[in-house]
Amino acid sequence: MKAVEVKNLYFKYNKEWILENINFILNDKEFLAIIGPNGGGKTTLLKLILGFLKPNKGEIKIYGKFPKQARKIIGYVPQHISFSIDIPITVFDIVLQGRLKKGKFFYSKIDKQKATEVLEKLHIYYLKDKRIKDLSGGERQKVLIARALVSEPKLLIMDEPTSAIDPRGQTEILDLIESLNVTRIVVSHDIKILLRKVDKIAYIHKKAIFHEGPKLNIPKDKHFCEIELINFLKDENCGI
């Protein structure tokens, strides 16, 4: 079953093409890592998939629907550093926000039960009544993942989930993402994500995806490393 289908996608900003002729298919429950340097178009692609931006050409389908119509089944995890942490808001209140929807003004018992279940599943129930500013970067990121999961999404999209987090926190976040049984798209400039059980990799840098393929074991796939990612990885440890 096709979860995400991107066909002949073009997007330009200020007369400059940011994305050109992007094509890929992601199947149900697959894990796609979108990597590439900053400014390469990763976040733009993510915003197109979320329906926050409109493509100039081409189309995106999420479980057969256009992004705006598919929002109900998308869970989105933005970067935890994008928000003001001074707001007096508890972890539980943030997670409950994932249950908000059009025409609904109050949280039900079921909403609170779902939020509790997700917090328990992610092993952060003990943080429930803590104010968001009192948490570490890794804990804040887990809270945002919990907020996305509480809406029971079919597709989970994460933007730089390991940025500004200490190494131990990064490992925990990546373990968590790997264990989730939903379709996942993770945008990251951190190539350590390739060490994980990703099903597909999209490398975006200046307009194009260089690679989109079947399940790969990157550390052992010398060919992939040398040919496809050579420019990107030349300053990194290619063997990872």
Partner: peptide, 22 residues
């Protein structure tokens, strides 16, 4: 009374509120 949850969500993360169809 009616918009408390939405105002709080808007104050924390406007983009996420939009994603929830509001």
């Amino acid at each position: 009374i009616f918009l408390y949850n939405r105002f709080l969500a808007m104050s924390y993360d406007k983009e996420f509120l939009t994603l929830r169809g509001i």
